[in-house]
Design a protein around this nucleic acid. Structure first.
Length: 536
DNA sequence: ATGGTAGATAGC
DNA sequence: GAATGCTATCTACCAT
């Protein structure tokens, strides 16, 4: 493993040295980090050299082929003359992600060397979780030269590729890469999860490209309302909340609203340990709720002539947990169409489910969500207070915990089983898996009981959801519609007004069926509605 | 000034 | 024996 000096300015000479290092050597990757403005670089880069990090990644050293990552340019054309040296071909990926510590994790003692996600290794990593992404990235890297379509290696710097085009190209390359990698993925039990991610990419590309319609003036008016309220508010708690809203959200229309009145985000299907999506710039998965910022979600709306379909899974984590644990009692609740919160409340209050009051049910809801993933009584007190406005003493919290576990003994057994892994975890690595085999590895001494409970459940739910997204992509297109956002267990589509009801039924059915393929022992329910705005 | 991290808080 | 988890983004703070 070799690295070029990290503070080099990217110029023809630096590229030449990189090529020499790569040629016929066991070098896997070379990073060039620009630390000083370069006269040939665009002004936006020169003004912020920190952001100009260009990575070179050897794909197949014998072919002198490498991939260049660049994080900061919306338009890559100004870079073309810099990159068009004698050592082409290059492929340019704007807006790649960096793992500056990744090679260090391999024992490479070179500061500031980056190991990047190429558009294709993007497909591979994450399937197994970030802790061991390098193993699978190296696999993809080894096969990448053979798997990429020929035009990628044409010797041309691809001009001004948008991030979307890059991901789209990765999606196009996915089948070939999948074929090559399948035997090794299968040996690791990862082929189903990997195949899912490959199939998902086109739907993600379309969703990012679509964006979501936003009423900019209304959004800004609401933000002005926050500022006005901050002026006259004394209460420290409310002030802090308003400051958070202003600093995080007020600039969204300016920063992210396109000329066409649509806001586009970056979705990252492979960026989390669990398999859920990450989302950034802006993070549309954390738009404040109606409770926190009334009216804000109403700014997210359908175009004239269209409607939104908004659908979300009902109690998905409880259902997945009932399936995975397994917990017969909880499965029975769902099979009978009963309410799991009412069931817990009945145990807690020692009365029939039919006589449970709304306050008792509210407490039980906190109990079910809180204790499912290993929360303790102490923490539950804060949780119930903070999220549900329920004040209870430690003894009451303990009673609630016992009521939960006696209502769902299968969940208690599941916790005991995972807890039993603890002694081994001090000296050996442990792995937990989702339904499709995606894995999360805990290195020796780094085991987390709670994460070992949570990640397979979260991840399995994410897999069912991703299956639904794959199926919905072509199905909605037949109605002239499209998916526009996904928020963990919630899906937003935009369809022509005349197909609103048909699309609602379609989305609900496909989401239910897709999740049922993964979660086979518990009925799956999706709530859905047709609306002009995101908010209810 | 730049860079890294901790804690709080937005979402699920 | 006890233990929610997964994120992104902002502010504050400390080290260089």
């Amino acid at each position: 493993m070799t690295a070029i000096a990290s503070e080099d300015v990217l110029d023809a000479e630096a590229l030449r040295r990189a090529a020499d290092l790569l040629a016929g050597s066991p070098v896997l990757g070379v990073a060039v980090v620009l630390a000083a403005p370069h006269p040939d670089l665009p002004r936006e880069a020169a003004s912020d050299p920190r952001r100009v990090r260009v990575d070179l990644l050897a794909l197949a050293s014998e072919q002198h082929t490498f991939v260049i990552h660049c994080t900061c340019f919306a338009d890559l054309r100004p870079l073309a003359p810099v990159l068009a040296g004698p050592h082409a071909p290059y492929v340019v990926f704007p807006d790649a992600h960096f793992h500056l510590t990744a090679l260090a994790g391999l024992g490479l003692q070179v500061p500031r060397v980056g190991c990047t996600r190429t558009a294709a290794t993007l497909l591979a990593e994450g399937v197994i979780g970030r802790h061991d992404e390098l193993e699978i990235s190296a696999l993809a890297r080894r096969h990448l030269g053979a798997a990429l379509p020929g035009e990628w290696l044409s010797g041309q710097v691809l001009p001004a590729w948008s991030r979307l085009e890059v991901v789209a190209a990765a999606a196009a390359a996915a089948p070939a890469l999948l074929r090559v990698l399948t035997p090794e993925l299968r040996a690791r039990g990862l082929s189903r999860a990997y195949e899912l991610e490959c199939k998902l990419l086109p739907a993600v590309v379309a969703m990012e490209a679509a964006g979501i319609g936003v009423d900019g003036p209304h959004f800004l008016a609401i933000a002005d309302g926050w500022r006005a309220e901050l002026q006259v508010t004394e209460a420290e708690g409310r002030r802090a909340q308003l400051e958070k809203l202003i600093s995080t959200y007020a600039g969204w229309p300016r920063d992210f609203l396109g000329d066409d009145g649509r806001m586009r985000t970056h979705l990252h299907p492979l960026a989390t340990d669990s398999g859920r999506f990450a989302c950034s710039q802006p993070n549309l998965q954390q738009v404040p709720s109606e409770h926190t910022a009334p009216g804000l979600r109403s700014c997210f709306r359908a175009e004239p002539g269209n409607v939104l379909v908004v659908a979300d899974y009902a109690q998905i984590e409880l259902r997945v947990a009932a399936h995975l644990a397994p917990c017969a009692a909880m499965r029975e609740v769902f099979h009978a169409g009963r309410d799991p919160h009412r069931a817990t409340a009945a145990t807690l209050a020692r009365k029939p489910e039919a006589e449970v009051t709304s306050h008792e049910r509210k407490l039980a809801k906190a109990v079910n969500f809180g204790f499912l993933f290993g929360m303790g009584a102490r923490r539950f007190q804060e949780y119930a207070e903070g999220n549900y406005g329920l004040a209870l003493d430690l003894a009451a919290a303990e009673r609630a915990r016992e009521a939960f576990f006696s209502t769902f003994p299968g969940i208690a057994a599941w916790h005991r089983k995972v807890s039993a892994l603890q002694p081994r975890s001090a000296r050996e690595d442990l792995t937990v898996r989702t339904a499709l085999g995606r894995r999360k590895r805990f290195l020796a001494g780094k085991f987390s009981f709670n994460a070992a409970l949570n990640i397979p459940v979260q991840g399995t739910a994410a897999e069912g959801f991703k299956k639904a997204m794959i199926a919905l992509h072509p199905a909605l297109a037949e109605l002239g519609g499209r998916g526009i956002l996904c928020v963990h267990d919630e899906y937003l589509a935009e369809v022509p007004e005349e197909h609103g009801e048909a699309a609602r039924a379609l989305v609900q059915r496909i989401m239910q069926e897709a999740m049922a393929e993964v979660v086979t022992s518990v009925p799956i329910l999706v709530d859905s509605r047709v609306a002009r705005h995101w908010a209810e």
